[in-house]
Write a protein that binds this DNA or RNA. Structure first.
Lengths: 203, 203, 203, 203
DNA sequence: TATGAATGAGTCTTCATTCAT
DNA sequence: AATGAATGAAGACTCATTCAT
């Protein structure tokens, strides 16, 4: 069996490939991997079904490439700017901004989040991608904190806990799972907790 | 049209139904819902394919009934004993025990966890089940704390955060996502954080 | 293979068999042969599914026995009284009564009619039954006419045509296929036609 | 969800679609709707099972489209020429020709006739098709008669009766249900009867 | 490159019939 | 004689992937 996935070199072909990824990833995020078929993807990408298999090994390939292409924007938008500076007394403010950023991001593409989170739990490769990026995110945040003169004292663990707290809060706010919770109070508690985590680390 | 889901009355039939649920739920948890077919389920349950549809509306039904039957044990084992008493100074110990319990539980059936977590993210009904139970769990824990003289001061929010912290820790410990983390330190940080949450609520 | 259809001798057993025939034939007439399953039949007859196969070779057997038992009442109620006498001048009246009788009969069990007519066209055995009875009916009517001093002059053919005319009229009246037809006029035309058929045969 | 019934555009595809209709309709007419499965249809059309569902919504769709395509030829061949002219004294001859035409037509595809007649009695949609065409046929015949200077005096009812007489005769001739009937006599009686129907309408 | 028609294995589900009790 | 649980073959339909053009 020869390897017949071509890496497109012409501009038009590249665009076509990206269109398929975009359309496919969107559909999968909206309706789920098993509820999206290649014909739909091709149609959405305004492309024939046959061509899909010239650019992609299989349906799964579309998903993973889509994740690579769009995943960062959706899940780890914070990865981008590592040069944030804040004053010690504004740690609160920094946290608040971070949380808002996170929440907004979730709100924008919450079906994508759901579907990908779903696959993380059942697909090793997707999980791998996610955990790798999560680690990058942790490192990125560590860097930011170090740049702002935090002590490197179990920083990995603390950052991980911190991100968990934020993610949990953010999830609650986005999906309103528990009707009787006060999000403002929750956010304050979370911020207070994070500050507690780092109480001895701000120089 | 005849009603064709039979509620089995004979002992043998009841056992068979349970066997199908067990086998089906196991397979689904192991391989995923879409990668498990009814023939496999029937075979695993040592039963003909036909009989499956006498006890269950469809394949999905097996999953939900399995969840109802095994879900509590897998996800919310703590729901059972609400009459825990501990002394103020032993809050640490209580937390530590709770965390160990959680972790062990995760370890025992981590594929089940993964698959169900997966479906929570893509299936409304499963999500519903989960969130309802999670709420029960929150309430149960609230009750325990109130019984141990904690103040009712934004208790829902605090318990939610607390459970999030534990869950996050536990997830990390079970799946070793990030190789270079020190779980003992993490646990201590988590416990410290939880204590911080309730710092003004222990009478 | 031994012949294991038992001819029930005990009263209770006979009743049970008849109940199955009744229930089965009713359901089949109402919903169609292929849309009626044995479980439904058994349930309607308040009998277990297993027992059905002690009295009947198969599902088809229920249908044919039902036809034998109820068919005459439904399709050929006129078979019963062959001793009708009428005066020459009352031939009209006789025809009118016959037509009314026919129409009422159709109206009472028109779904049965439909389903059986359907099977006549696709099932040789049912067709056979039907044509045999139709012949009996023709003969019976011939006899009546002969008893009333009609000449035996191509009587079979005439009676067949006559029955066709009545059946056609009756079908139209029962199912209202063509909205803009005046049934009274049709009936009069049919009667006139039948009288024309026999114009030279009334002695 | 993607629209998955394709209207084929390429010549080959169109031919294939027609081949499926033809093969499917033939099999259904020969063996009955419930005794024909999609695999057989595909095989008869020399096509894979999958392709069937690209051209047809479901098995039933094949039947109805087959009916649309072949139904007129089989059931209502007379619909085509409405410009028949005959002289008053040749009404006999016109009727005779019509009857022969009808009979030949029945003979050619009598299994199709049977199966479709069967479905008319059990399937609303098929019945609808049939009755609509029957009405067209009635109207067409009315037109012919009016064009030949027949009076419009309860013409609908008369034509309906006339067609019933012909159909009945034709059915008898085709299926030989009653062995001892003389078809020539029957035909003469039918023609005489029809003439009687219109006795006052020939200007 | 590109099309979209074609393939056929795979899936869920039904149901007439048989079997253990 | 009776029950109703059990069987398993068969059927309609789907869809990732390949092929002819």
């Amino acid at each position: 069996m020869i390897e017949n996935i071509r890496e497109p070199k012409q501009q038009r072909a590249i665009e076509k490939k990206e269109k398929i990824i975009e359309a496919g990833f969107n559909l999968i995020c909206k309706n789920g991997y098993y509820n999206t078929n290649t014909a739909e993807i091709a149609k959405a990408a305004k492309v024939s079904t046959g061509i899909v298999y010239q650019y992609f090994k299989d349906k799964y390939d579309i998903l993973t490439l889509g994740l690579e292409k769009y995943g960062d924007d959706i899940f780890f938008p914070m990865l981008k700017n590592k040069n944030i500076k804040f004053k010690k007394k504004d740690f609160d403010k920094f946290l608040n901004q971070m949380i808002q950023h996170y929440i907004n991001n979730h709100k924008v593409s919450n079906t994508a989040h759901e579907e990908i989170m779903s696959m993380i739990h059942s697909d090793k490769k997707i999980a791998n991608y996610y955990y790798k990026r999560e680690l990058e995110m942790t490192n990125s945040l560590k860097e930011i904190l170090l740049n702002n003169n935090f002590k490197d004292n179990n920083l990995s663990e603390k950052v991980h806990i911190m991100l968990g707290l934020i993610d949990n809060l953010c999830h609650e706010v986005t999906y309103h799972k528990h009707k009787d919770m006060n999000y403002e109070i929750m956010e304050n508690l979370v911020i207070d907790n994070i500050k507690n985590l780092f109480k001895n680390d701000l120089v």
